[in-house]
Write a protein that binds this DNA or RNA. Structure first.
Length: 104
DNA sequence: ATTTTGACTTAAG
DNA sequence: GCTTAAGCCAAAA
């Protein structure tokens, strides 16, 4: 099991209405400082529909990168449709971060 | 094997 | 609160 495989496994487990940070995924994958690699792997995204890269956000809850469509706005709306609570232009981490309360 | 780069993170201005 | 700088690890060229 490579590091990237773990990342993909974790990323695919993100439930709807929740988001995870790159750092968090990296940490769960075993490397707390490999957040950048996580983002890189998301961009590669060999599991396109299975890995909801739009549910992966930065440490501040803001979306970084995301070159798709309108840009970050489109992602934002998509996340809102899933039930993610937004705080201005950022995700409300206190409510919509993955792993709060009951992690599956 | 070495170098470069990166959808990040944290600290400082 | 936002911008700039440095750091860190891993993957890709």
């Amino acid at each position: 099991m490579s590091f990237k495989e773990k990342v993909y496994e974790i990323a695919r487990k993100i439930p709807s209405g929740k988001v995870a940070t790159y750092g968090q995924i990296a940490k769960m994958a075993g490397q707390s400082k490999a957040a950048r690699v996580v983002g890189y792997l998301m961009r590669t995204n060999p599991f396109a529909p299975e890995v909801p890269c739009h549910r992966v956000v930065g440490a501040d809850g803001g979306m970084v990168g995301f070159s798709a469509g309108e840009g970050l706005k489109t992602k934002k709306q998509m996340l809102v449709s899933e039930g993610v609570v937004f705080k201005g232009n950022r995700v409300d981490l206190g409510k919509s971060i993955w792993g709060v309360g009951k992690m599956k």
